[in-house]
Structure formats: C-alpha cells, structure tokens
C-alpha cells in the first residue's frame, strides 16, 4: 500500500513535514510516500496541535500535592519528599514496579540460549590494559557512590533505584571485562539475587499489614528503618536484575545471521 521510499533519502530531520509549496508539492510528496503515510503524518500534526493546545491550557499555578506531602512528611520516616512518596505514600506502586523489573528479568532468562553455546568472551582482546586499568580504578568508586546514593536517598534525591543503576553499571564493566562469569553462577543464586528485593519488600509489607491491619502502613516510629531496609535490598536486586538483562544475552559473536546484518540495509521493506 505504501510505496517503499528508498532508505537513503530519509525525510528531512524534522519530523513534521512542513507543507511544501502549494498543492502540487503535497501531491508529489504524497505520491512519493504513499497516501497512508501522508494521512498519518497529518494526524500526528493534528495530535501535536491538540497537545500544544492542552499544554498551553494547563492551569499555570497549581502546586499539585506538594502541600499534602509536606504535611505528612513528619510521619513518613524519611526526609526527602520523593523517597517518602515513593516508598511510603505510594509504596504499593513501588512494590509493583519491582515486580515489573523481576518479570522483565524472568522474560530475559526464558529467552536466553543454552549457556554452553556462548563461549566466554575471548580473553586478551586488544586494549586489554585500558579496560583492566579502568576496572581497577572505577569499580571501588562506583560502589562508593552507590552506597552514598542509597544513604542520601533518605534526605536528598537518591535512593534505591539510582543506587541500583550505579551497581548495574559496575556489573556491566565487570562482565565486559570478562571478570564475571555470568553463566557459571549457580541457578539458585541467580534467581535468589533477582527476587531478593521483592521478597524483602513483600515480607516487610505483610508483617506491617498484620501489625496495623492496613496494607503497607508502617508504624510511626519504625517507618524510617523499614524503608531503609527495603531500600537496601531493592537496590541490590535492581542491580542484579539490570546485570542479568544485559549479561543474559552477550553481544552477538560472528554468526551467519550477524554477517547478513552488517551487509544488508537496515531498512527492510514495510
């Protein structure tokens, strides 16, 4: 239905094709990239116009829930409002979010190939020294920052997710540097590490619910500690999850399919 446009002449960088000179231009342009595309483009422009209109129409001076959050900060057990919202006021969301991460990792584990089919990355690749050097220098620093971020989450922007991300970065470095044999990690350890965060969160939540007869309602004085406990475990498991997501599928070594990838154009027909 839409005639294929040769890949090289990508439309100009601006996504919104400006209406070129007069109807002739449009017709020629439409003929060139097919009617559906043109219609679609017009519709996207319309959508954009609508969104513009709504954004401009938004109430300018609304403080949102800032006041409410501030009012309950004292009870939330943490200083930083974001962490309070994340882990206390909307703790349920965060719980589900961690489950999302876990599921993503399960998805990847399902799709990984049998371990032996991927020979470990050949050691002694050129530029080994630079990589080793970086590893030696950066890994400790990364761990430190992760720890700080985790702690800072209590009163400043930071927290479990940021810490987990930094940990993951460290992990990536190790995997690329061939320091971590991802495939030899025993199965149970792999699964435990992934789901550790969720397990702790659920345990805490159930204990708390039993105590206060209300889902995820931390008792006043224990809130801070509990949140911290959750933060630590969650950060760890997020790190592991992200590493699994990356390491579960090593970069493609030279396989026939790979060769075909490099040579073929990367824009197959619609």
């Amino acid at each position: 239905m839409t005639s294929n446009k040769s890949p090289t002449t990508e439309p100009a960088s601006t996504r919104r094709p400006k209406s070129s000179s007069g109807a002739a231009g449009v017709r020629e342009f439409a003929a060139e990239i097919g009617f559906a595309r043109v219609a679609f483009n017009l519709l996207v422009v319309l959508l954009l116009g609508l969104l513009f209109w709504t954004v401009l129409d938004l109430p300018p001076q609304s403080a949102g829930l800032h006041a409410k959050v501030k009012a309950h900060m004292h009870v939330s057990g943490v200083a930083s409002p974001i962490t309070a919202v994340l882990l206390n006021f909307r703790g349920y969301d965060t719980l589900l979010e961690i489950v999302v991460l876990l599921l993503a990792s399960i998805g990847c584990l399902i799709l990984r190939d049998a371990p032996q089919s991927h020979p470990a990355l050949a050691p002694g690749r050129p530029g080994k020294w630079v990589l080793d050097g970086m590893i030696h220098v950066l890994i400790p620093v990364m761990l430190l920052t992760a720890g700080y971020l985790l702690w800072a989450g209590d009163h400043a922007p930071g927290g479990a997710f940021q810490a987990g991300a930094v940990l993951a970065a460290a992990g990536f470095l190790l995997v690329l540097g061939n320091r971590m044999r991802f495939w030899r990690t025993p199965e149970w350890l792999l699964r435990l590490s992934l789901s550790f965060g969720m397990i702790v969160f659920v345990l805490v939540a159930s204990v708390v619910t039993i105590l206060t007869k209300n889902l995820l309602q931390y008792p006043e004085n224990y809130a801070g500690i509990l949140i911290l406990l959750i933060e630590i475990s969650v950060a760890g498991s997020i790190g592991c999850v992200l590493i699994t997501l990356f390491a579960g599928h090593p970069p493609v070594t030279r396989t026939p399919a790979a060769d075909q990838l490099w040579h073929s154009n990367d824009e197959p027909k619609e």
């Binding site: 829930l65 409410k68 959050v69 309950h72 919202v85 206390n88 006021f89 909307r90 703790g91 349920y92 969301d93 206060t212 209300n214 889902l215 995820l216 309602q217 931390y218």
Partner: peptide, 15 residues
Amino acid sequence: RHTVGGWSSPLGIEL
C-alpha cells in the same frame, strides 16, 4: 474501601 498505607486518596492509593 481500603486505603493503602493509611493515606487517603489524593496522596495514597485506594483499593
């Protein structure tokens, strides 16, 4: 009606 985490609706989540 069950407010999660004891926070009423605008702030907290309500089941």
